[in-house]
């Protein structure tokens, strides 16, 4: 604490209210915080869509139920597996496990696209029914967020390559986001299973 000479810095006068002692705070991790905040915002977006789905479902009797493409369950397994791999990678700070996650994540996205093609083959397009419309909107929006997560993983891998210490905070944040993608997908899947 340096009191640099500066006229108005230390005026005389009544003592300022007893300042609480500055406690040594834990080292903040902005990346982690940022991801938690992003999680809150993304949850809000999906909550809004869910309520829209409920309202739209009750607005008219044109809801057409259909069977979800079975590949979705395979994709789910892939995504969960990728999360497990990434968690192992985070604990060991191992770049090659992040590469595996990246690969599994890409396969998941491809799998989702395959699911769309299967629906299209059944004649279920975006505008066919509100149920198919919401199906595409939910999966597309989730897929976009997964792609964002893949971008994050790519950033972490680039930091691994760069000189300097391993990007532990960035890896932790990316893992947190990636796990959230799992949770979000499970919620979306349950919603789709229940209502579509």
């Amino acid at each position: 604490m340096t009191t640099v000479a500066s006229p108005p810095a230390q005026p005389p006068g009544p003592p300022t209210p007893a300042a609480p002692p500055v406690v040594e705070q834990p080292r903040p991790r902005p990346a982690q915080t940022g991801v938690w905040i992003a999680i809150a915002a993304i949850s809000m977006t999906f909550a809004a869509l869910t309520s829209a789905m409920v309202v739209r479902g009750s607005a008219a009797a044109d809801w057409r139920h259909f069977r979800l493409p079975p590949i979705l369950y395979l994709n789910t397994a892939l995504l969960l597996a990728s999360s497990a791999v990434l968690e192992a990678g985070r604990r060991r700070v191992a770049a090659h496990l992040v590469w595996v996650t990246l690969g599994l994540g890409l396969v998941f996205v491809v799998g989702q696209v395959v699911a769309w093609r299967q629906l299209v083959a059944q004649g279920l397009f975006l505008a066919t029914s509100p149920s198919s419309a919401f199906f595409y909107v939910f999966t597309a929006l989730h897929g976009l967020h997964v792609l964002g997560g893949l971008g994050g993983l790519g950033y972490v891998l680039r930091r691994f390559d760069a000189a300097g210490p391993a990007p532990v905070p960035a890896l932790g944040a990316a893992a947190l986001y990636w796990h959230f993608m799992d949770v979000l997908w499970l919620c979306v899947l349950v919603l789709l299973v229940l209502r579509v």
């Binding site: 975006l126 505008a127 509100p130 419309a133």
Partner: peptide, 25 residues
Amino acid sequence: GLIAFAVLMPACILLILDRVAGTSF
């Protein structure tokens, strides 16, 4: 803002789909 814009964004996406993709939200 985090909450408000997170709701308007999907609403606008649905609006765009109604306009260009023939959906009926």
